[in-house]
């Protein structure tokens, strides 16, 4: 069985700045991969490439069977299979929690209102927010908003979930409630790639750690590399973190 995500020598530049200088790694079905590294190491860019928010300029990138390095990728097909959660939540402020979650199932999956409502109730219960259906995003805490954003992604039943520094905007108290949801998804077997600064969390949840440094994968392996790093760069990074 081929990996859910596979990067081979992926390259990406913004103008004259080369951000990804030949990145290779893969994520198998059911695995949780954590991308770690300093700011500017290219980890968020790598993640955004996986949902085609950025286009790659070299190498091969396959996500859920969609070859993103080939011209003519059908974005709508890719995005049926991939869910993404952002650092800034990006909930739709004019819609209630339920409407935020129901929007894509209704418009993209063409569900009836009742079906979409059922789906919304179900995924919001999974993130512990069943009682917030009628609230507006601004009435929720950051942690609650981020859990709604996760539920919104889950409602589309993706095969892969991407998390882009989803706890970076939260204080430590609220971080916990979001991480618990992600941990639960991991235990249910969801394939996930997360860009994170939470080393303790990565150690606990990730099957695979990918340490990026200066636009390349500098070191990767199981969670044990966080305790016994092989390269001095990762050791120094972990010390500072």
């Amino acid at each position: 069985m081929s990996p859910v995500v596979e990067l081979e020598d992926v390259r990406k530049s913004f103008g004259s700045l080369e951000v990804l200088k030949g990145v290779s790694f893969s994520v198998e079905r059911g695995q949780v991969a954590a991308l770690i590294g300093q700011s500017g190491s290219g980890k968020s860019t790598a993640l955004r490439c996986m949902d085609r928010l950025e286009t790659i300029q070299g190498g091969r990138l396959t996500v859920c069977g969609h070859a993103l390095h080939e011209p003519g990728v059908k974005l709508s097909d890719l995005r049926r299979d991939v869910g993404i959660v952002f650092q800034g939540y990006n909930l739709f402020p004019h819609l209630t929690v339920a409407q935020n979650v129901m929007l894509a199932p209704r418009l993209v999956r063409k569900m009836s209102k009742a079906q979409a409502k059922d789906r919304a109730e179900q995924v919001l219960a999974r993130v512990g927010l069943a009682e917030k259906l009628g609230a507006y995003p601004e009435q929720l805490s950051g942690g609650q908003q981020q859990r709604v954003a996760i539920a919104r992604g889950l409602a589309m039943e993706p095969k892969l979930m991407l998390f882009d520094e989803v706890t970076s905007a939260l204080d430590p108290q609220l971080t916990g409630e979001v991480l618990r949801v992600i941990e639960q998804l991991a235990s249910e077997g969801m394939t996930m790639v997360l860009v994170t600064h939470e080393m303790e969390f990565a150690r606990r949840v990730a099957d695979r750690i990918v340490y990026m440094h200066l636009g390349k994968v500098h070191e990767s392996g199981g969670p044990e590399i966080l305790t016994r790093p092989a390269t001095p760069e990762l050791a120094r990074f972990l010390e500072a973190a």
Partner: peptide, 19 residues
């Protein structure tokens, strides 16, 4: 980020504008 989130949920360009 609003547009990005909507596009990533699979909404078409027209749907993103309308909703």
């Amino acid at each position: 980020g609003q547009t990005e989130a909507a596009e990533c949920l699979g909404l078409s360009r027209l749907q993103v504008y309308l909703h």
